[in-house]
Simulated scan of single mutants.
Amino acid sequence: MTARAQRDAADSFDPLRPRLVRVAYRMLGSVADAEDVVQDAFLRWMGTDRALVREPEAFLRRTVTRLCLDQLKSARRQRESYVGPWLPDPVVGEDEVEEDVTLPLMLALERLSPLERAAFLLHDVFGVGFEEVALTIHRDAAACRQLAARARSHVREARPRFQIEQERGLEIAQAFFTASRSGDMTKLGAMLAADVSMHSDGGGKRPAALRPVLGWKQVIQLHKALAVMFGKYGSALVRTVMVNGLPGFITREADGELQTTALDIEDGQVRAIYVTRNPDKLRHLH
Rank of each mutant, 00 (worst) to 15 (best):
12 S>P: 00
133 V>Y: 13
239 R>G: 01
142 A>F: 14
229 M>I: 14
220 I>A: 01
66 R>K: 08
100 D>L: 11
239 R>Y: 02
130 F>E: 05
238 V>N: 00
92 V>D: 01
155 V>M: 06
268 G>C: 06
19 R>M: 11
277 R>C: 05
231 G>F: 11
18 P>D: 09
100 D>P: 06
12 S>E: 10
232 K>V: 08
138 H>Y: 04
58 A>F: 09
283 R>Y: 11
26 R>G: 04
56 P>I: 03
218 Q>V: 03
194 A>E: 09
179 A>K: 00
245 G>H: 10
145 R>Y: 08
95 D>M: 04
202 G>S: 04
220 I>H: 09
62 R>Y: 09
87 L>C: 10
76 R>L: 08
279 P>H: 08
257 E>P: 06
240 T>W: 02
1 M>W: 14
11 D>H: 12
181 R>N: 10
223 H>M: 11
26 R>I: 07
92 V>C: 13
256 G>I: 12
179 A>D: 00
108 A>Q: 01
276 T>D: 10
206 R>P: 00
238 V>W: 02
248 G>V: 05
153 S>Y: 10
3 A>F: 10
79 R>S: 08
246 L>Q: 04
50 R>I: 03
167 E>L: 09
280 D>M: 14
141 A>Y: 10
239 R>D: 07
92 V>I: 12
52 L>D: 15
23 V>P: 06
154 H>W: 02
180 S>T: 12
143 A>T: 12
259 Q>K: 12
264 D>F: 13
94 E>F: 02
184 D>N: 11
58 A>L: 14
284 H>R: 07
92 V>G: 01
11 D>P: 13
38 V>A: 06
128 V>C: 14
200 S>Q: 10
148 A>N: 04
209 A>E: 11
16 L>R: 05
37 V>T: 13
39 Q>D: 15
285 L>Q: 02
20 L>H: 05
4 R>Q: 11
40 D>W: 05
190 A>M: 11
276 T>V: 14
61 R>T: 15
286 H>F: 08
149 A>Y: 04
89 D>Y: 02
86 W>K: 13
265 I>H: 08
195 D>C: 07
131 E>N: 11
146 Q>S: 13
129 G>Q: 14
206 R>Q: 05
218 Q>A: 12
219 V>N: 09
58 A>T: 07
85 P>T: 12
244 N>A: 12
90 P>V: 02
123 H>I: 08
68 C>R: 03
179 A>L: 01
43 L>M: 10
153 S>F: 03
64 V>E: 04
98 E>S: 14
178 T>S: 13
6 Q>A: 15
182 S>P: 05
29 G>A: 07
172 I>H: 01
125 V>L: 02
257 E>K: 13
89 D>V: 08
239 R>W: 06
22 R>N: 09
130 F>D: 03
114 P>N: 00
202 G>M: 10
245 G>E: 05
129 G>H: 15
158 A>G: 03
149 A>H: 00
283 R>P: 08
162 F>G: 02
282 L>I: 03
217 K>T: 13
179 A>Q: 03
49 D>G: 09
224 K>I: 14
243 V>P: 01
37 V>Y: 06
